[in-house]
Nucleic acid binder design. Structure first.
Lengths: 216, 216
DNA sequence: TATGAGTGAGTGAGTAGTTCCTCACTAAAC
DNA sequence: GTTTAGTGAGGAACTACTCACTCACTCATA
């Protein structure tokens, strides 16, 4: 499960790269669909080949192993998160100083709900694998920790100093925020197509978090 | 995936039933351990037999199929939830009328965190299967809906009439509560053994929910 | 008490099927 | 004509599951 190599894979396999050979794109899309529907272990490479309209050998011409194919499928997600993780050096995203709690929570929730919405299938696969795969789980954890310490913590500390947010450990505030967003993720996976759009859901979640995290 | 038969299986397979043949218990315990560690699909019946110190044939003497073994492993959980689902007829648990928001949230959170803590391995397996198995997912959904309409809704409505809780749709209040508890579950799965006990975690979660769900 | 028929939990070699992956090959592109 | 993209039959290793068999045990009969 060589996700550590996803950076290289990313450049080579990104779904919407127009320079990608058509068959390779077909294989990736078929894999995404099948992995999300049946799970990685329950999807055979024969299934993938058939769904992609390609011979099984072609799958292995393009991807060395089935695991590499999984990594390639997950790469749009991991690369996005990686990009954010490195964003500590960017000035646009880095530790904005918010002047109201509402502005901060709005920003975070709106972004994450949209992210969940846009990457639902990939996230589903990632979660399904993370449950049993320590390596994948650790990569998620360290990505989150990077976001937490590089971006989130700064904004929250600033708000705490202005007494605009509750004075709890930052990890806790992070946990409750992520949990609320996770609730939307679960709803999307469980009731696909009959769930609020992120735009409809966001104001409610924001309202709830704003109350729960308001200074006391 | 005949979880619908778990009621029968339950009487026959409950882990702590002392009348259970020793080998059957061994098989169940080995399965629980392996399913939780590697996942259902990645655990072979040969693995289970070896871990249980039993021949593979014995596994099939005790459990008709591998799916039946999964159902048996999940049965302590499903039976517990079933019991609660039927609790609409019980008077002790039914729709208590709470006099403060704190009492209500305390009750719910304390119970659920303890439940998560006590059934971690089983819940992990259940979640892992639910992601890709519509049937299991639907059973979870209907169990939750039963709890929601039979117990939760009554208490919340009563609190709303006394203006002790926020006036949002009950489904939303339920969602945020479950999400917060889900956060603890994810922490437990991700960092086993280095996470707060339910007793330590509960007051914080209660505090957060109490603020977020306070009337406006 | 000694015998032996009967029972059923336990076994593990075996089966049919599926898995991932390879490789000698062909067709097409440059 | 050489290189590359694509093929699909085939193999080794696995899978869930079966079944003919063993053997420690019980218990009615001699």
């Amino acid at each position: 499960m060589a996700i550590s190599k996803t950076f290289a894979l990313y450049q080579q396999n990104l779904n919407n790269d127009p320079t990608l050979p058509k068959k390779q794109k077909d294989i990736l899309q078929a894999s995404l669909k099948l992995f999300a529907a049946k799970g990685f272990h329950d999807t055979s490479t024969a299934d993938i080949a058939q769904a992609a309209g390609v011979a099984e050998g072609t799958v292995y011409k393009r991807f060395k192993t089935k695991d590499a194919l999984l990594s390639a499928v997950l790469s749009p997600l991991t690369s996005t998160v990686l990009a954010e993780t490195v964003a500590e050096f960017s000035e646009t995203t880095l530790a904005k100083e918010y002047t109201t709690l509402h502005a901060f929570i709005s920003d975070v929730v709106t972004n994450r709900l949209a992210f969940v919405n846009d990457n639902l299938a990939t996230i589903k696969i990632l979660v399904g694998e993370a449950i049993y795969n320590t390596s994948i789980r650790n990569q998620i954890v360290s990505a989150m920790q990077a976001v937490l310490t590089n971006q989130y913590a700064h904004s929250v500390k600033a708000l705490q100093q202005k007494n605009l947010i509750v004075d709890w450990p930052i990890k806790l505030i992070f946990q409750y925020t992520i949990s609320s967003i996770g609730g939307y993720l679960v709803k999307q996976i469980t009731f696909p197509k009959q769930v609020n759009s992120p735009d409809e859901e966001a104001p409610q979640v924001i309202h709830f978090l704003e109350k729960g995290l308001a200074p006391e």
